[in-house]
C-alpha cells in the first residue's frame, strides 16, 4: 500500500437486498486519521453500505478498495476492527468479558494459540474501555452500554488501523458514550481511521471529521458536523417508513405477483 491510498474507497457502489436495490451509486472515501459518520433515515442504506465495506454484502456494481487493494484481493483483515450492532452478538452459552474480547486477537493469530502479546493486547483494550476489572464477569451481567464497550474492546484487541462501527450509540448510557469518544480520539490521533453508522451525532460530534448523509441509497450531502446538528438530532419522523426517497421503487413483497 502506498501512503496516500485512502483506507476506504467506495466508488459508484450499487447493491441489492433480494430484489430491492439498496445502494444506488454511493461514493465514500475515508482517509487515514479521519472519523467519518454515515447518517441517514432507516432504510437509507447506511447499514448496507457498511456491510458492503466489510465484504458481507456483495456489490452489484461499482468498486471497493480497502487500503489500496480491491476487495477481492484484500487479505489484511487484521487491519479492520468491526463492531457489529449489539443485538447480533450473543451466543447460547455464557461467556466472560475476557473470552469475548480475546476473540478479537484471532485476526492476528488465525489458527495458532494465543500468547503473551495477545494477553497484553486484550488487557490494554479492556483498559481503554474502562472494563479492566470486569474481565472475569459474564457478559450477560453487563448493562447495554457496558456490553457495547466489550464489543468495542474486542475490535480494539486486534490493534486495527480501521474501526468500523454499526450504531454504536444505540441504547448506550452517557458514560459509555464518553468512553467511545475517547477511544475514537486516541485511535485517530495514532493515525487510524474510523467509519461509524449513526442515527445521530450526539456526544460524538466533536470527534467526527466528516458526515455523509445517505438518502434512498444515494449520498445526499457531505458536510462537517456543525451544520448538520439540526438534521442529525431531530431526524424527520417519516424516517420510520421504508420507501425513503420519493422516486424509490415500490417494495415488492412477492405475495401478490
Amino acid at each position: 500500500m502506498k501512503v496516500e491510498d485512502p483506507v476506504i474507497a467506495l466508488r459508484g457502489a450499487t447493491a441489492s437486498l433480494g430484489a430491492r436495490p439498496v445502494l444506488r451509486g454511493v461514493d465514500l472515501t475515508v482517509e487515514a486519521g479521519e472519523t467519518v459518520a454515515l447518517l441517514g433515515e432507516n432504510g437509507s442504506g447506511k447499514s448496507t453500505a457498511v456491510r458492503a465495506v466489510i465484504g458481507q454484502v456483495a456489490l452489484t456494481g461499482g468498486s471497493l478498495e480497502l487500503f489500496g487493494s480491491p476487495l477481492r484481493r484484500f487479505r489484511h483483515w487484521r487491519r479492520v476492527g468491526y463492531v457489529p450492532q449489539r443485538s447480533t452478538a450473543t451466543g447460547g452459552v455464557p461467556a466472560t468479558v475476557g473470552e469475548v474480547v480475546s476473540s478479537g486477537r484471532l485476526a492476528r493469530r488465525g489458527l495458532r494459540p494465543l500468547g503473551r502479546a495477545d494477553r497484553a493486547a486484550v488487557a490494554h483494550a479492556l483498559e481503554q474501555v474502562g472494563l479492566a476489572d470486569r474481565a472475569g464477569d459474564s457478559v450477560e451481567e453487563l448493562s447495554g452500554g457496558q456490553h457495547q464497550r466489550v464489543l468495542i474492546a474486542r475490535a480494539l484487541a486486534g490493534e486495527p488501523d480501521l474501526l468500523i462501527m454499526d450504531e454504536p450509540l444505540a441504547g448506550v448510557d452517557v458514560g459509555s458514550q464518553r468512553v467511545l469518544a475517547d477511544v475514537l480520539r486516541a485511535h485517530t490521533a495514532a493515525g487510524g481511521a474510523a467509519l461509524l453508522v449513526l442515527h445521530e451525532l450526539g456526544p460524538l460530534a466533536p470527534v467526527i471529521s466528516r458526515t455523509v448523509v445517505l438518502r434512498g441509497g444515494r449520498v445526499e450531502t457531505v458536510d462537517d458536523p456543525e451544520r448538520l446538528h439540526d438534521l442529525a438530532c431531530h431526524p424527520p419522523d417519516a424516517a420510520e417508513q421504508e420507501p425513503a426517497a420519493p422516486h424509490a421503487p415500490k417494495i415488492e413483497t412477492g405475495l401478490l405477483t
Binding site: 465484504g55 483483515w77 487484521r78 468491526y82 452478538a89 451466543g91 461467556a95 485476526a107
Partner: peptide
C-alpha cells in the same frame, strides 16, 4: 485445540468472518 476459533465462530459468525477466520 480450536476452541477459541470455534468459540468466535459460534458466538458471532459475522465478526469471525470479518476477522478473516476460515
Amino acid at each position: 485445540g480450536l476452541r477459541r476459533q470455534l468459540f468466535a465462530v459460534c458466538q458471532d459468525e459475522e465478526f469471525a468472518r470479518v476477522t478473516g477466520l476460515p
